[in-house]
Design a protein around this nucleic acid. Sequence first.
DNA 1: CTCTCACTTGAGAGCTACTCTCAATTTCAT
DNA 2: ATGAAATTGAGAGTAGCTCTCAAGTGAGAG
Lengths: 245, 245
Amino acid sequence: MPDNAGMAARTKSPAPSPGSSSGPSASGPSADGSPDTTAEGYLAQFLGAQTVRLGLRERKKQATRNAIRRATFTLIEEQGYDATTIEQIAAAAEVSPSTVFRYFATKEDIVLTDEYDPVMLAVLRERPEGEPPLASLRFLLTEAVKAVSAHEPEELRQRSRLIVEVPAVRARMTETMAQTSQALSVVLAERTGRAPDDLEVRMFTAAVLGALREAMIYWGERGFEEDLLAVVGRTFDLFERGLTL
Amino acid sequence: MPDNAGMAARTKSPAPSPGSSSGPSASGPSADGSPDTTAEGYLAQFLGAQTVRLGLRERKKQATRNAIRRATFTLIEEQGYDATTIEQIAAAAEVSPSTVFRYFATKEDIVLTDEYDPVMLAVLRERPEGEPPLASLRFLLTEAVKAVSAHEPEELRQRSRLIVEVPAVRARMTETMAQTSQALSVVLAERTGRAPDDLEVRMFTAAVLGALREAMIYWGERGFEEDLLAVVGRTFDLFERGLTL
DNA sequence: CTCTCACTTGAGAGCTACTCTCAATTTCAT
DNA sequence: ATGAAATTGAGAGTAGCTCTCAAGTGAGAG
């Protein structure tokens, strides 16, 4: 899977202001109908959609957010993750340290955050009715990987490198994936007519995401040589074989 | 699964001294032959085995370690996890804060650490030759749960509660499980004649442990009402059905 | 039994992620 | 333009964790 492709970090919402009101949240995408199943841009369209039509306030917030993230990536590239402090990031982004924490709950989140989660949930809900859960997840994650690879390939690599190399980042991503797993489980339970907290469904998604996490680390360990999409493919192939070793 | 049953935390080894030399490490158990398959004590015997015959130094270290853990559990019980500081723990255990960090790399580890990991690996190696990986894991984890439930039932509950309630603890346990997963993968790869870093094996174990993590959280969420062993059973049943939903 | 060496400990200084509060500034709506 | 709401910076504070150094304690050799 991609970075934490589609596993947005949303724990500990960034304090009071910016974080909470910023995102267009989960509703947006499903409205504009007619999804073109273009191989490479299925999820992408759901994202850019409502970026326009924003007041000055919102635009400034996005700008600040991007400034912080860009500054962070640059600094880390130069000095490494641990050596980069929040103070430096704040200085480079020309904001105060307080502001950094207003936008990102943890230092790790600056590197990890993306907003695919609500999109993936929306897409999952719109999958053909009888589609088996595993097929739905395969579609979802494949598309997510494509989208991230196309949209922000450089970030994907750097992020993945940090996930492999920095324990704290990896841990945070794992937490984030677990949350995504929960959210997906609820929708899958609904789609298969089970209770929202059905144990089997939860274990199922947890198993799939757990395997994907491993696949992605594997990918990172080999220096991103292999095709990420292929690695994800192997993961789902394994599950389709009934996970028999 | 139990707390992090058998998933010992061993990252960032507790600084120079005590941590490194303390444990009898991985070799011990496999030596004394004739394992009695007594339903409830299979793994247990591997543990107590070499607790005796220790010099004063080692005994003191064990005592300190226990003192710290006991103090921690007590304080957390009274005040909650976040409200309990290392300083308080140190005071209660009658050691210095430095010493606490010499024995445990992180605050979370004080609550999580146990030493089933090397035992599990040793036991896994001794499983009958042709046994399918899933069956081996089932045996291993079932026994681990039994052992922990019998050995330290009270800690198991409190630990599980913290895993459900405190994100930091849960995250740390997950990291720990990932490491266990890696270790198990290596042995499983060996037993099935594959490369030590074979992707399919890694995904397989990651999937199983991911599901178990979920099962354990599920168990904790219901207030430990259901039988933990049964929940673990359901997990493996699901996998034996080929993980079909 | 004792002397020496390696190990363990406590003290303390230091760094940084993260929280909280408050006053100042900026955007938005009317 | 004016008042309300939101965003920001400043600053102080907490706690986990690291590192260093000197003092104390157990282990083994002679």
